[in-house]
Design a binder for these strands. Structure first.
Length: 887
DNA sequence: CATGGTATATCG
DNA sequence: CGATATAC
C-alpha cells in the first residue's frame, strides 16, 4: 500500500524515531496469565503432541539455558528440565492468537498516549516518532521545567560509548567547535538523548499499565531504530548517535538490516562482494540501481549513509485480517470434503475476527483473498485469488473461497472422481482486506456529538487529562525542524474519521480511563490515524443516512445471530445430515475423527446468518449479489463420495502446526557487532538494570538504587532516594526544597517548610522497596511536606541528617551551597545537566506554547528557529567527567 | 514431512 | 491483480 511516505533529505537526521519491541512477548503474556510461572524459564509452544510442541517464544531465563526457538518442547526440557511450556490456545484445530493480539493492542494503546505518530509494525512492535515531544521537552529544559538527570536515563545505552555519561559528556562539551555539519549532528543527537528520557517513561508506562517489559531503539530513522533496539535486549533501550554509525557499520553484516535479511541481502553481498554495511558506501547510487531495483538502489545508497527517509505513519490497525494453515507432508489436503472443512474453519475465524473488527473499528473489508499452495508434480505451486467480500458470513466466505479455487485451478479434481483433488493442497489461507470505513452516519443530533468530539481534539490519543490541545488544527508552532520533517511530511492524513455514536462513546470511554502521562500531550496536527484514511470521502459513497440507522440495527442483528449460532451449534448436529454423512465418511478414512466435528454445526449456523443478513441488507456492496452460495458447498460435499481412497488418511491436520509469532531471537549474533551487551547473570525480575555498574560487591550491605543503579549502603538508602526525589523536582521545587530544608536544619525543627509547590509535573518519589522492578516514573507521588518530614525524622531511625551540617555537608565549589555529602555526586550531576541545558539553549529558539485553539495560523516561526546559529559557548563549568559517573 | 501463522510491501 | 519476498 502506498501508505509509505518519505521525508525530505534535508531532514534526514531531524527526527527522533523509536522502535519499541516487546521482549519475548508471548512468554510475557503467558506469565501474566499464569503468575505462578513468573521468573521461571519459559517457552511458549504450540500444542502438538509431537515432541512436545513447537517452540515459538523463549524467555530470557530459558535462553540462558540454551533453549531456542526451532526446538521442540521435549528438546527444551533436556536443556532445561524446569522449563515451563505454556501452549498457544487452539481453536478449530489451529492456533488462536487472540490472546496475544489483545495484549499487543493493550501495549499499543499505552504507546499511543505518547504520540499519535504510532505505527504498529507487528503484534509486538511499534515505531514512534517522538520528535515533537522531544522538542517540547527541550523547551521545558530550557525553561528549567525539566532536568535531564541520570535517573531519567537508567537502562539507556549508547552505541559507540561506554556509557551514557560519556555520551552526555560529549554532547555537553561545547569547546570544540566543528564544522556546521558536526554541529548539526550534535543537535540531532541531543534530541536522541532527550528522546531517551521520554522513551524511558514510555517503557515505564508500558510496564506499569500492562505489566510487560520491552526494549527500544532510539535513532533518527526507522531502520536504524529497529536495528538499535536489538543491541541491548531485555528491558533496555539503546541510542544510536549519528557519529557512531560508521563504526557500527564496519562490523554490521548487511543481513542485519531490515529488508536485507533475505535473498536480496544475499544478492547484494554476492554481487557487490561485500559483507558489511560499511562496504556499501563505496558504490554509486546508479550502480546500485542498475543491479537492483531503482528504488532499492536509492534506498541502499542512502542506507549506506545511515539515512532512511521513510516516515513513521500513524497506523494502529491491520490493513488485513486473515488466517492460514499449512498442511505439510502427509497432511496435505487431498479430498474435497477436507478442503471444504478447512475452508470453513478458516472462514469461521476470519469472520469472527472481522465481526470484532467491525465492532471496534467501524469498518468493513471488501476484498477476500484466498491463497493456497498445491503440490503439482513434486513442485509447490502457490496461488492467490481475490474476490469481493460481500458479507461477513462464514458460509459465504467459505463457499466463495472454494469457488475461487475451483475456478482457478485447472483440473481441480482427479479425472473420474468427484472427491479427490487432482493436486494436494499443502497450504490454505483466507485474508480479508480493502477496508472501508462505515463512517459518516451523519445524523442530525449526532453531528453535534462529532463536533464536540473533534473540537475537543483530545480525541483518543490525547490523554484523559484535558491537557491535550484543543482544536485539531495544527502544530504547536513547534520547532520548525519538524515542519519539514517527520510528521510534517506525513502530510497524508487529514480527515478525521467519522465514527458512529457507538464509536464515539467508546472513544470517550477510552479517553476516560486512558492512562496517559502527566505531561502535555502533543497536539500534532494530524490527529487520527489513517486507518480510516483510505476512506477518502470520495471513495465511499455514503450509504447515506438511512444506513446510519441501519448501522446499529446491524449490530443487534449480529449479536442476535451470534447467539443463534451458538445455540445452533448445540443442536446443529441434525441439521446437516448430508454433510454429516460425508464428514463421517471422511472420518472413516481418517485417523483423526475429532477434528471434523464442527462442520455440521457450522453449516446450519451459516445458513441462518446468511439469510438474515440478506434480509436486512446488512452488507451492501456494489458488486453483484451472488445469490448463489450455499448450494455449492452442499453440492460438492454431496459429490464427495466417501471413497475412502479419497482421503488417503490425510485429514488430520490440526494437531501439528505450531503457530507463530516469534520474536526474533536476538540473543546471538545480533549484538555482536558493536554494542555488545553481554552481562546478564540472573534474570530475576529486572534483568537489565545494573549493567553499568561493575558487579563489585562492597563489603557492607548495599542495596541497588532503582533510580541510578548505584549500590547504596543500606542505611543510606532512604536518604539516597530522597535526593533522587529532590533531583526530579523542577527547578522551582528544588529551590523551595532547598530552602525548606535549610530552614529546617537551621531551626532544627520540623517546621512545615516548603509546602505548596504544586507543580504540574508530579514528582514521584521512588518507592522504597529496592526490589521493585525498574518502573521509573511511577505514580506514587509524595508531597513535598511529607518528603521533608520524612527526611527529617520518623521512619527509618538512623538518618544521617542528625549530625551537624559540617560533618555531613560540604560546600559545592560551583554554586557554593552546602550539599549533603551523600548527594554530592547527584548535585554535580545537576550542574552538568544544567550545562547540557545551556548547550541545548543554544539550539533552540524559545518556542511558544501553542495556545491558539482555533487559530490554525501556522506558527510562522521561520525555519531559522532550530537552524539558529549556535552561539559560542560561554560558561565553562567544571568538567563533566563526573556526570552520570554512576551509570 | 514438520516451526508456522500473520501481515505487508513491491514488482511486473 | 497476483506472485514473491521479508520479517515477526
Amino acid at each position: 500500500m502506498s501508505t509509505k511516505t518519505n521525508i525530505s533529505l534535508k531532514n534526514k537526521f531531524d527526527r527522533v524515531v523509536v522502535l519499541v519491541d516487546m521482549d519475548c512477548f508471548y512468554c510475557q503474556v503467558e506469565e501474566k496469565l499464569t503468575p505462578e510461572i513468573k521468573g521461571k524459564p519459559i517457552a511458549v509452544v504450540q500444542y502438538n503432541p509431537w515432541q512436545g510442541g513447537g517452540i515459538i517464544a523463549v524467555n530470557y531465563p530459558a535462553r540462558a539455558k540454551g533453549v531456542t526457538r526451532h526446538m521442540r518442547g521435549d528438546e527444551a526440557k533436556q536443556h532445561c528440565p524446569e522449563i515451563e511450556l505454556p501452549q498457544v490456545p487452539q481453536v478449530r484445530g489451529k492456533a488462536d492468537l487472540t490472546r496475544y493480539r489483545e495484549a499487543g493492542k493493550e501495549v499499543a494503546e499505552v504507546l499511543k498516549c505518547f504520540t499519535p505518530l504510532l505505527e504498529r509494525a507487528s503484534i509486538d512492535e511499534a515505531y514512534l516518532d517522538i520528535t515533537e515531544r522531544v522538542l517540547v521537552r527541550i523547551r521545558e529544559m530550557n525553561e528549567g521545567k525539566f532536568q535531564l538527570l541520570p535517573d531519567k536515563l537508567v537502562n539507556t545505552f549508547v552505541v559507540g560509548y561506554e556509557n551514557i555519561g560519556e555520551f552526555v559528556k560529549k554532547l555537553s562539551n561545547n569547546s570544540d567547535d566543528q564544522s556546521s555539519d558536526k554541529l548539526e549532528y550534535k543537535k540531532s543527537d541531543i534530541k536522541l538523548l532527550v528522546g531517551a528520557s521520554i522513551v524511558n517513561e514510555i517503557r515505564a508506562a508500558v510496564k506499569e499499565k500492562t505489566g510487560y517489559e520491552c526494549s527500544a531503539g532510539i535513532a533518527h530513522n526507522k531502520i536504524l531504530a529497529k536495528l538499535t533496539a536489538g543491541f541491548h535486549k531485555p528491558n533496555k533501550q539503546t541510542i544510536l548517535p549519528i557519529d557512531s554509525i560508521p563504526k557500527l557499520y564496519e562490523t554490521l553484516p548487511v543481513k542485519k538490516v531490515k529488508g536485507l535479511g533475505g535473498k536480496l541481502g544475499e544478492q547484494v553481498c554476492e554481487v557487490l562482494k561485500i559483507k558489511f554495511m560499511s562496504e556499501l558506501e563505496q558504490f554509486p547510487e546508479s550502480l546500485l540501481q542498475q543491479h537492483f531495483e531503482e528504488r532499492m538502489g536509492s534506498w541502499m545508497y542512502l542506507m549506506a549513509r545511515g539515512i532512511d527517509l521513510e516516515a513513521v505513519t500513524a497506523k494502529f490497525h491491520s490493513k488485513s485480517i486473515g488466517c492460514c494453515k499449512r498442511f505439510p507432508g502427509k497432511n496435505a489436503i487431498t479430498g474435497l470434503a477436507t478442503l471444504t472443512h478447512w475452508l470453513s474453519e478458516l472462514a469461521t475465524e476470519v469472520a469472527e475476527r472481522l465481526e470484532k473488527d467491525l465492532d471496534e473499528n467501524n469498518r468493513t473489508a471488501k476484498l477476500l483473498t484466498v491463497s493456497y499452495c498445491q503440490q503439482i508434480d513434486d513442485v509447490d505451486v502457490s496461488s492467490t485469488r481475490s474476490i469481493p467480500l460481500v458479507a461477513y458470513e462464514i458460509e459465504r466466505i467459505a463457499t466463495d473461497a472454494l469457488e475461487a479455487i475451483k475456478r482457478n485451478t485447472d483440473r481441480f479434481l482427479k479425472t473420474n472422481s468427484t472427491t479427490v483433488l487432482n493436486n494436494a493442497i499443502k497450504f490454505l489461507g483466507l485474508s480479508a482486506g480493502k477496508f472501508e470505513s462505515n463512517g459518516a452516519t451523519k445524523g442530525g443530533g449526532i453531528k453535534e456529538m462529532f463536533q464536540s468530539y473533534s473540537a475537543k481534539g483530545a480525541t483518543a490519543e490525547e490523554g484523559p487529562s484535558g491537557m491535550g490541545r484543543r482544536k485539531s488544527s495544527t502544530e504547536p508552532a513547534m520547532l520548525e525542524v519538524l515542519d519539514a520533517a517527520p510528521s510534517a511530511t506525513g502530510t497524508s492524513e487529514k480527515i478525521k474519521p467519522k465514527k458512529d455514536i457507538k464509536h464515539f462513546l467508546q472513544q470517550q470511554c477510552k479517553g476516560a480511563i486512558a492512562v496517559c502521562e502527566d505531561e502535555p500531550k502533543l497536539p500534532h496536527s494530524e490527529g487520527e490515524t489513517q486507518d480510516t484514511k483510505p476512506v477518502s470521502s470520495a471513495t465511499k459513497v455514503q450509504y447515506s443516512d438511512p444506513l446510519a440507522e441501519t448501522v446499529k440495527p446491524k449490530k443487534d442483528i449480529k449479536h442476535f445471530l451470534q447467539q443463534q449460532s451458538t445455540a445452533a451449534k448445540k443442536s446443529a448436529s441434525e441439521d446437516s445430515q448430508q454433510l454429516k454423512t460425508e464428514t463421517v465418511e471422511e472420518k472413516a478414512a481418517n485417523p483423526d475423527p475429532d477434528q471434523m466435528k464442527p462442520e455440521g454445526g457450522y453449516k446450519s449456523v451459516l445458513h441462518q446468518s446468511t439469510a438474515k443478513s440478506k434480509d436486512h441488507n446488512i452488507i451492501e456492496l456494489k458488486s453483484i449479489h451472488n445469490v448463489v452460495e450455499t448450494n455449492s458447498t452442499n453440492h460438492s460435499k454431496r459429490e464427495e463420495t466417501p471413497t475412502s481412497a479419497t482421503y488417503n488418511g490425510n485429514i488430520e491436520p490440526d494437531k501439528n502446526q505450531p503457530v507463530t509469532e516469534t520474536k526474533r531471537d536476538e540473543t546471538l549474533e545480533n549484538s555482536s557487532s558493536t554494542a555488545e551487551a553481554k552481562p546478564q547473570p540472573n534474570y530475576k525480575e529486572t534483568y537489565a538494570e545494573f549493567n553499568f555498574i561493575p558487579p563489585v560487591e562492597p563489603a557492607i550491605v548495599t542495596v541497588d538504587c532503582q533510580q541510578c543503579g548505584s549500590k547504596i549502603p543500606e542505611n543510606e538508602y532512604i536518604s539516597h532516594q530522597d535526593f533522587h526525589f529532590a533531583l526530579s523536582l523542577s527547578q522551582q521545587q528544588r529551590d523551595e526544597f532547598r530552602n525548606g530544608l535549610k530552614s529546617k536544619l537551621a531551626a532544627g525543627t520540623n517546621a512545615a517548610a516548603a509546602k505548596g509547590t504544586k507543580s504540574p509535573i508530579p514528582a514521584k518519589r521512588p518507592s522504597k522497596t529496592p526490589s521493585g522492578p525498574a518502573t521509573h516514573s511511577s505514580s506514587s507521588g509524595v508531597s513535598i511536606e511529607r518528603f521533608l518530614s520524612k527526611t527529617r525524622s520518623i521512619d527509618e531511625g538512623p538518618i544521617i541528617a542528625s549530625t551537624s551540617e559540617t560533618e555531613t555537608h560540604s560546600r559545592c565549589p560551583e554554586c557554593g551551597k552546602m550539599i549533603a555529602l551523600l548527594a554530592i555526586s547527584e548535585h554535580q550531576d545537576y550542574h552538568v545537566a544544567k550545562r547540557l541545558q545551556q548547550e541545548l539553549h543554544r539550539l533552540e529558539a524559545p518556542a511558544q506554547p501553542q495556545t491558539g485553539d482555533t487559530a490554525s495560523t501556522k506558527r510562522k516561526r521561520p525555519s531559522t528557529a532550530v537552524e539558529e546559529i549556535m552561539l559560542p559557548a560561554k560558561q565553562k563549568v567544571k568538567p563533566v567527567s563526573s556526570y552520570f559517573s554512576k551509570l
